[in-house]
Amino acid sequence: MAAQAQYEELARQLSAFGVVKRDLGRIMPAVCSPGSAAVLTLLGRHGDMRMSNLSELLAVDMSVTSRHVAHLAERGWIDRSPDPADRRSRILHLTPEGRTVLAELYRRSVALLAERLSDWTDDEIGQLIRLMSRLRAGFGDGRSTLHRPPPPPAPPSRPAPPPLHETTRTPA
């Protein structure tokens, strides 16, 4: 098991990892926010799905998901069709234009990673992929703890109340 100092350093490194995500976000087209890119990526990876499933995978509130979906639908990158099992729900799916945008997002991301990691060996990149996959798997897909507050701390144990003593009453 790793020492406490190693976990502390890991926490610092993960916090600093935001710079990588920001750089990846900067290469996206202006009309495609990182949130929109995440929606396209999830639909590309998992296929058609309900908005509630998408919201779970994004680990965000349904209102945030709805804004991303509306933005993408306005651009013609996704379609919302009635769910045959529940006409009140909508099934989201990528359009051909959405698939083209997604392919461009991947192309840009791969180009940036290839540029920034050009001095890494294939083995080092493979090791990073394996370790990141394992780390992500250790946290699950985000759905298990979504929208659940952390459990409250256990109440402090209280001593048992003193026994009740019978009171003496004078009969009236």
Rank of each mutant, 00 (worst) to 15 (best):
R67Y: 02
D141N: 08
N53E: 14
D141F: 01
R88M: 03
L40Y: 00
R99F: 00
P152M: 11
V64M: 08
A70F: 10
F17L: 11
G98E: 01
A38S: 10
G18A: 14
L72I: 05
P82V: 07
I78D: 00
G126V: 03
H71L: 11
A172D: 09
F139C: 04
E166A: 14
G35D: 02
A37H: 04
A73L: 08
N53I: 05
Y106N: 07
P161E: 04
A38K: 01
H71Y: 03
K21T: 13
S63Y: 04
R26Q: 14
G98F: 04
A11I: 08
Y106I: 10
N53V: 07
D79T: 15
P149D: 07
L146P: 03
H93Q: 15
L105F: 01
D83R: 00
E56C: 05
P29K: 01
H165M: 06
L40N: 04
E74H: 10
S52F: 07
V101M: 11
V64W: 01
R158H: 04
A172Y: 09
R12S: 15
A30M: 13
T100H: 09
I78F: 02
V101N: 02
W77R: 02
R87D: 15
S55W: 05
G98W: 02
L131P: 14
S89G: 14
H93R: 07
E104A: 00
R12W: 10
H93K: 07
P84H: 08
I78V: 06
T145M: 14
